[in-house]
């Protein structure tokens, strides 16, 4: 099959960083903080590259929306094996209020423009924890969705997807074109090797503005405040299992 996959990647604060809320309660501190590709997006890229290696698809196009810095995230995906990139430039105030609704409109417009057969995204970004963009992209395109995927098998113009659900797993079959969102267990993303990082520098990244795609970035969601969660009171250390049992009994827990 000679088709194209669109993969969305997001630049987020690195998963291991302990975040800090800004004193003015307007958000979290991002300046000078380590950023990387959202872990679920890495899994999405890996899956797309694997599909191309299996010759089930022809081209992997990676997209990221945001300021200049998201170019690094696109480069990382290119070093992992994506063929080319699209940087959808969003800056300033518009970037601050950029949410899943706006991103899904961009993804849907690009999927049409690029004539993609498949859009693969992570199941959620670890910063806003929304878990919405894939579902919304599918809705805007009127394509079926295979969310929280832990196994993807392409068979002709159909995809079999094993999904992680609350009680276990379920298997669905959806028609292509489709949108798939990756769960943690879909694969283990590869590390980009130095030669591949060098090669990635030569790959093309197109610059696009949301307006070129006919997407309006107006948001009707306002962030009123961002606060620290309540702190737990310091606990106690117990010496023995008997002490632990006694404490739990005293507190009425057992």
């Amino acid at each position: 099959m000679s088709s194209r996959v669109l993969v969305g990647v997001k630049r987020v604060i690195d998963y291991a960083v302990k975040i800090r809320v800004k004193p003015d309660r307007s958000g979290v501190v991002t300046d000078g903080v380590k950023h990387s590709m959202n872990p679920f997006c890495e899994i999405a890229v890996e899956e797309a590259v694997k599909l191309r290696e299996k010759k089930l698809i022809k081209e992997v196009v990676v997209v990221s929306c945001g300021p200049q810095q998201v170019m690094e995230t696109i480069r990382t995906a290119l070093a992992m094996g994506a063929d080319r990139g699209i940087h959808v430039e969003v800056t300033g105030k518009e970037y601050e209020t950029l949410g899943p609704l706006q991103v899904s409109k961009i993804m849907a417009a690009l999927a049409k423009k690029e004539e993609a057969k498949l859009v693969i995204l992570g199941k959620q970004a670890i910063d806003d924890d929304c878990n919405q963009t894939g579902q919304m992209t599918a809705a805007l395109l009127d394509w079926p969705q295979g969310t929280f995927a832990s196994e993807v098998t392409i068979d002709g113009d159909k995809i079999k997807i094993v999904r992680e659900i609350d009680g276990g797993l379920e298997t669905i079959q959806i028609n292509m074109p489709a949108v798939v969102t990756a769960d943690l267990r879909l694969n283990t993303p590869r590390y980009a090797t130095l030669p591949n990082i060098m090669k990635a520098k030569k790959k093309k990244i197109a610059n696009v503005k949301p307006a070129d795609l006919g997407v309006d970035l107006t948001s009707r969601i306002e962030t009123v405040s961002v606060d620290d969660p309540p702190q737990r009171l310091a606990g106690v250390k117990v010496e023995t299992v008997d002490d632990l049992v006694a404490k739990l009994k005293e507190a009425g827990n057992i």
Binding site: G99, P100, L101, S104, D129, C130, N131, Q132, T133, G134, Q135, M136, T137, A138, A139, L140, Q145, T147, F148, R163, E164, I165, D166, S219, R220, I221
Partner: peptide, 23 residues
């Protein structure tokens, strides 16, 4: 906000052209 709700409601929201709020 279970696997069911997370899968379904954003799709409904996009069809209504509104931004949903999760969890």
């Amino acid at each position: 906000a279970s696997a069911f709700g997370k899968n379904l409601l954003p799709r409904v929201a996009a069809k209504l052209d509104v931004a949903p709020i999760s969890d």
